[in-house]
Design a protein around this nucleic acid. Sequence first.
DNA 1: GACCTGCTGCGGTATG
Length: 821
Amino acid sequence: MTKGRAAIQAWFDERGWTEFDFQKRCWNAYLRGEQGLLNAPTGSGKTYAMWFGPVMEWINEQKKDFRDVKPTGLQVLWLTPLRALASDIARALQDSCDGLGLPWTVETRTSDTSQAVKQRQLKRMPQALITTPESLHVLLSMSGGADLFKHLRMAVVDEWHELLGSKRGTQTELGLAHLRSLRPKLRTWGISATIGNLEEAKDVLLGAAAAEAKSKIVRVKQKKLMTIESVLPESIERFPWSGHLGAHMVEKIIPLVHASKTTLIFTNVRSQTEIWYHRLLEAAPELAGQMAIHHGSLDTGVRHWVEDALRRERLRAVVCTSTLDLGVDFSPVETVIQVGSPKGVARFLQRAGRSGHSPGATSRMYFVPTNALELVEAAAIQEAIKQTDVEARKPIINPLDVLVQWLTTLASGGGFKRAEALAEVRGTHAFKDISDEEFDWVLDFITTGGRSLHAYDEYKKVVLNEDGDYAIADRRTALRHRMQIGTITADAALKVQFLSGKKLGTIEEGFISGIKPGKSFWFAGRNLELVRIKEMTVFVKKSSKKDGRVPSWQGGRIPLSTEVSEHMRMQIDAAAQKKRTRRIEMRTLEPLLNLQRAWSLLPEADTLLIEKTFSREGCHVFFYPFEGRLVHEGMGAVLAYRIAQMQPISFSIAMNDYGFEILSEDDIPIEEALLRDVFSSDNLVEDIYASVNATEMARRRFREIARVAGLVFQGYPGQKKLNRHLQASSGLLFDVFEKYDGGNLLLRQAYTETLAFQLEEKRLRRALDAIRARRIELRYPERFTPFAFPIMVDRLREKLGSERVTDRIQKMKLQLEEAAG
DNA sequence: GACCTGCTGCGGTATG
C-alpha cells in the first residue's frame, strides 16, 4: 500500500507539485469506492488527480513488485470532447507511468489515429485509452467490441460541462450505461468547470449508478485569482449606442498587446476576427509576423500552426473566436482581451482562465465593450462572478434520434435483447422515464421503418432473430452506420485554397457568390484575389489590393444568459434608484442613462418599461424585459398575435437581447392590450404555434434529427453529398411524416425541440409570469431612447443592408443630438 | 465622425 503511495508521492515531489493534498483527496475517494465529479480549475493537476486512483488500486492488487507484472487489458477509459486534447493527455499520463516504472501503456483513439493502430487496439488494448464519446460508440459498434472492456476499472469524462447540455452528452450517458452493464463495478468520474448545477451534472453522469455507490463532488479549495478591467472609451457621448464590431476600440488595446508577452484577443464572431486582425495590423504595423488569427473556418493545418507557435512563444497576439476557449494547454498566455460581451458568466470565466494558466497564478482579463449597453453587461457579469452566479447546463431529456442511433450501434456490435437494452437505457438520466411504448416505437422504427417507410429496405437496418436478438441487417448497413455515428451536424461549405494547393479554410456559398473573379476579399488574415471556383473549391492568389470585403458566416446566435439578464436588471435598478455604484462601467455610462431617464424612464427591477413612439414609419412599441433575443422573439410574436386578435392589425417585430419592438402603420392599442392581460402565460403553446411559423422551424430542426437518427446518408468520405441534397431529403421525410405518419415520434421531437431550444419556452413562460408580477410603466417618448435605438438599428440593417443603414443612423443621430443639445 | 455580425465540437471500408 504505502509503496505505491510513496512512489507517487516521490513522483510529485520531483516535479515540485504544490497541490498534492488535492490529488490525495481524489484518489482516496476512488479507493473508498466512491464516484462522482471533480470541480477544479485548469492547471490544478486534475488529470493526475483522477488518474492515480486506479493506478494505486492496481498497484495494491499486485502481490509482488508491480514492475514485474505484465498488465492485462484496458483499465482506464478517458473521454474528452476534443480530439486535439487526447494526445496531450496521453503524453502526460504515459510520462507519469514511465516515471513510476509502471508497465502501463497509454494510447489515443480518435479519427486521427491510424487504421493500423486502431486494428491493433482491437486485439490488444493499452491500459489506458484516451478517446472521444463518438469513438467509444464506434468501438462499441464493432463486433466483439464489448470484450475490450472486460478489465475496465474507471471511466473518466473530462470537460463534462462541455458535453452535458448537448446530444453529445446523451451519447456519453448511453455509452457509460452500457459499460456499467458490462462491468458492474465500474467507477465513473467526471471533471467539470464550475457551472450552476454541479450536483445535477454529477447525477446525470452517474445515472442510475448514483444510487448504487456513494457519490460525491470533490472541489479544489483554492480560489482562482482573477482581475477584470473594462477598457473604457474616451468619451461616452461619442460611443456608439449599437453595433458589435468595436473597431473604434482597436487603438486602445495596442498598448495592452505591447505590454505583455502574449495576448489572446477573443471576439464573438469569425468575421470580427478578420476585421480586428486587419485593423490591428494597420494601426500597429510592427506586429506583422508576430500576430495570427484563429477561428473555426480556418483549415486545421493553419490552426495547428498557430497553436504550435503560441506554445513556443513565437507569437505576441492571436485574434480568435472560442476555438481557443478549450484546447491545448496554453501556459504562456499572459493577457486575455475579450472584445464584445460574451453573453454569459461561464463563458467569460472560461476565457479569463486562459491566462495565468497555472496553480496560484492570477488571470488577467480586459473587457472591450463595442457599444454603450455592453458596459451594463460588463458590470452585470462582474457582479455575477463575485456572487458565483454561473449558468447551469441543462441535460437533454428523451432525444429519440440519439436512441435510434444508439440501438443501431448496439445491433452492429453483436446485437442486443430488448429487456436488457431497455434496462440499460433507463439507467441513463436522459431516458430514465422513457415509456415502453416509446422504446418499442424506436425498436419498430429501426426494424421496419415505421408506418411510412416500411416499403424501403434501407430503413430496415435491424432484424429481430428468432431467439429474440436484435442484430444489424447486414455488413453494409453496419459500415454505413459506423460512418454516421455522432450528433454534430455541420453545414457544407466551399474550400478556399491557393493555386499552389495550400489550404486556407472554408467559406460559405452565399458570401463568395457575391464576389467576381479578379476581385479580392479578406480571409485567414490575408487579402486574397478570387481566381475561380471549381468543384466546391475557391481558388485564390495573394492580392496586393488594399480593399476587399470581409466574409460573413451564418453562425449561431448566442442569447444573453438568464444570469446576465438578471444582473443587468439589477445594475439598471441601482442606477434608477441613484444608488452609488463602485462599478466604473456604470459610472461611465451615467450621461446615457440620464438621457434614458429624462426622455423616458430608467426601470427599477420590479418594473417593466414599455415605450410607445410615433415616427414616419408608423407606431412603435418597445418592451424591455432583458431576457435574451430568443425569448424576445417568442414574446414579441405572441404579443403581436394577441393584439391582432383584439383588432385586425399587421406588425413587424424586431428584437435584441434587451428588448423587442412591434411596429405597425396603424396605432397599436397597447393601452387596451395591457388591460386585457396580454402577458398571460395561459395558452402559451397554442398562441406560439398560432403566431410563429412553427412548421418551418420544426422542419429546420428535423434536419438535425434525421441526420442523427441516420435517416439521411451523408455520402462516403471524400465524396460528401451537397448540403442542399441533405436538406432536400430530410425535408422530404419531414413532409412524408407530416402527411402519413403524424404519430411519428421523431417528427414530434422536432416540434418539442423547436419549443425548447428555438423559442426557449420554459424561460419565456417564466419571463411572462415574472412580468405579470411587475409594475408596468408605459411611456410616450418623443424620440427613440438609448434603449430603443439599438433595436431600431438592428431591424433597419436586416431590412436595408448595412450601407444604407449607416446613412439612416447618421440622420437619427443628428436628430438625437439636436434633441439632447 | 463613428454605427458594418452572428461560436464550438466528431465520425467514417478490412484478413491473419
